[in-house]
Design a protein around this nucleic acid. Sequence first.
DNA 1: TAATAAAATGTAATATTGACACAATTATAA
DNA 2: TTATAATTGTGTCAATATTACATTTTATTA
Lengths: 237, 237
Amino acid sequence: MKYSGQIRTLVAVDCIILGFDGEEYKLLLIQRGFAPEKKKWSLMGGFIQPTETLEEAAIRILKQLTGLENVYMEQLHTFSDPNRDPVERTIAVAYFALVDIQKYEKQISKEFHAEWFSLKDTPELIFDHNQMIEMAKNRLRYKAAFHPILFELLPDKFTLPQLQALYEGLYDTLFDRRNFSRKLLSTGLFIKQKEKEKETSKKGAFYYKLDQDRYLSDFQAFLKFIPNPDKLMYQEA
Amino acid sequence: MKYSGQIRTLVAVDCIILGFDGEEYKLLLIQRGFAPEKKKWSLMGGFIQPTETLEEAAIRILKQLTGLENVYMEQLHTFSDPNRDPVERTIAVAYFALVDIQKYEKQISKEFHAEWFSLKDTPELIFDHNQMIEMAKNRLRYKAAFHPILFELLPDKFTLPQLQALYEGLYDTLFDRRNFSRKLLSTGLFIKQKEKEKETSKKGAFYYKLDQDRYLSDFQAFLKFIPNPDKLMYQEA
DNA sequence: TAATAAAATGTAATATTGACACAATTATAA
DNA sequence: TTATAATTGTGTCAATATTACATTTTATTA
């Protein structure tokens, strides 16, 4: 301790882990195993360790809970209300992660009493975790309107109707099927497969895959995935 | 200290203070008065205090250096490399502020040896401060493409040519005067004044003011201030 | 083989954008 | 006094993108 006269604070990382089950958005929560607020639902989190960065901590915590690595994750915001944790002042850095819900390893959930909740029906959480989730939702809405980020939630192969459900679910609205597919396909990000998905409809819908090269090179490009984005996005909390 | 077995860390706030002098973007830096890296240029910063939030700390630090309050400021990112500060591990939360450079109170700068630098010609700074500035530039480029944020840099009254210089400076490019003014004016954000600014040109250019009501209500609206935004924005560091 | 359900493709009207030209204003010089 | 020059303000048209809406295709099953 060489900067004298300054306080030192606990720094925690909290992970907002989002998935999509084909119908609706899901949020992975754990039942807190220790006081305070034991048994209450909470985001998965942990304290930063001496030799790791925040990002490394977030990756560590995500892996602990889901078994997943190489997952899309970004820093969301740092929360600092002096009384946000009643036990002791803790600065919390929130990260949000987008995972393919099917890759999630269930056996791990037992250790933490984890469960997927509908994002629309999030329970009351400890501390400021509900606020974090609100912010993550807004960030995702914003980013997904212009960048091909939602594909992190889908398996390798997906159909146009699945894609549309993904976008409609996020913005809680309906898009015109014809205009939607034209807009999406015009990005050139998708490669049509020869097989069809035939579980959900008689005719079956062609599978598509992401063109990985284009996906990487165009991730920052400014695409427009939805019409009238300003009417569908909300201010960050 | 009630969460046992966890380390506590210093938490600092660093402020990226940006201005525009009519010609180019400026960055307010201080000459560090204490070790390490004494005399080297640095962002203005400070440690968070026990009873304040990060945002309050940022506001406090900004006021200390500039005398300004009610300034546009947003949290940028939290930096956490364990070795970013060689003296002691410090987590740094960067904020960026947009100020009207004319309102800045010069007498204050003497205390901190502060100076405005051209953003294009930023000197080498301590720690990871150059990286913070890169990220702030990218964030500003991104946000300004769609939200009326740059007006925080201008005085109450401004002309269309000034406005265009503001945007051209940020994106380091030239826009067609006619298309630019059409796009900007079509947002309905501006109220034409009767007076002209006659310093810089023979003919003089009409002043405009922001329609404050619309500005507040449309701040989150999704406008498009520049053509081909994707060609002008860069990935965040 | 006809009916049905869902996916895929097509088209015309409208709105937005981008490229470009010309007119208006006024200090300064001829 | 008038011409010049520099800069601001406004206008037009073609190309492009978007929206709203209809029809055709595919495969199942009655």
